[in-house]
Simulated assay, not measured.
Amino acid sequence: MPTPPCPCGLPEPYEECCGRFHAGAAAAPSAEALMRSRYSAFVKGGTGYLLRTWHPRTRPARLELDPGMRWTGLEILETADGSAFHATGIVTFRASYRGGSLHERSRFERVDGAWVYVDGEFLG
């Protein structure tokens, strides 16, 4: 039986894709990779990972995910900077869920060499 692809939309199995970031075996190498891994964490209910990868300046004290939320897909629409050669990056995406979608432009920064989510602007 074939292994299903990662929830982030890339064809690799979860363990080889976002799962290694969630387990702490590696750090996301780009803002887009962090965006994808954070989406997968929302799918899997990984609040610890979401909080760890949130910028200390904007991180909430607690995070409670809606257990009834069913995420159904991620589409990366645009990226700006966010590579190994940048200190900041922007990822525009659409995350679909049962009953609708979330369209956001997210900002990322490096803190101690690791990419973290800063904040996002909802686009509709």
Rank of each mutant, 00 (worst) to 15 (best):
T3S: 13
P4T: 00
P4L: 03
P4E: 05
P4H: 06
P5T: 00
P5A: 12
C6I: 05
P7Y: 02
P7H: 07
P7C: 05
C8M: 12
C8I: 08
G9I: 04
G9F: 02
L10W: 09
L10Q: 14
E12F: 07
P13K: 02
P13G: 02
P13R: 09
P13A: 02
E15R: 14
E16F: 12
C18G: 03
R20Q: 14
H22R: 02
H22Y: 01
A23Q: 10
G24K: 04
G24H: 04
G24M: 10
G24L: 11
A25Q: 14
A25W: 11
A28W: 09
A28Y: 05
A28G: 12
P29D: 13
P29L: 10
A31E: 02
A31Y: 00
E32G: 01
E32K: 01
A33V: 14
A33L: 10
A33F: 06
L34F: 08
M35T: 00
R36D: 03
R36G: 06
S37V: 09
R38F: 03
R38I: 09
S40D: 03
F42L: 06
F42D: 02
K44E: 13
G45K: 01
G46F: 04
G46H: 14
T47H: 04
T47C: 13
T47I: 13
G48M: 11
G48K: 15
G48P: 09
G48L: 08
L51G: 04
T53Q: 12
W54F: 07
H55Y: 10
H55N: 15
H55K: 11
H55S: 09
H55Q: 07
P56A: 08
P56V: 09
P56F: 04
R57A: 15
T58L: 06
T58S: 14
T58C: 04
R59T: 08
R59Q: 03
R62L: 12
L65W: 06
L65M: 08
D66Y: 02
P67L: 07
G68S: 03
G68Y: 01
R70N: 05
R70D: 02
R70H: 11
R70G: 09
W71T: 07
G73F: 05
G73L: 00
G73W: 03
L74Y: 01
L77E: 08
E78D: 08
T79I: 00
S83P: 00
S83F: 01
A84P: 04
A84G: 06
A87F: 13
A87S: 15
T88L: 00
G89D: 01
G89C: 10
G89S: 04
V91M: 00
V91R: 00
T92Q: 02
R94F: 08
A95M: 01
S96P: 06
S96G: 14
G99H: 09
S101T: 11
S101C: 13
S101F: 14
S101L: 12
S101E: 09
L102K: 10
L102C: 07
H103W: 13
H103Y: 11
E104F: 07
R105N: 05
S106T: 07
R107Y: 12
R107N: 10
E109S: 15
E109T: 15
R110Y: 07
R110L: 11
V111H: 14
G113I: 02
W115F: 11
V116D: 03
Y117R: 10
Y117Q: 12
V118H: 09
D119C: 13
E121C: 03
E121H: 12
E121T: 14
L123I: 08
G124F: 05
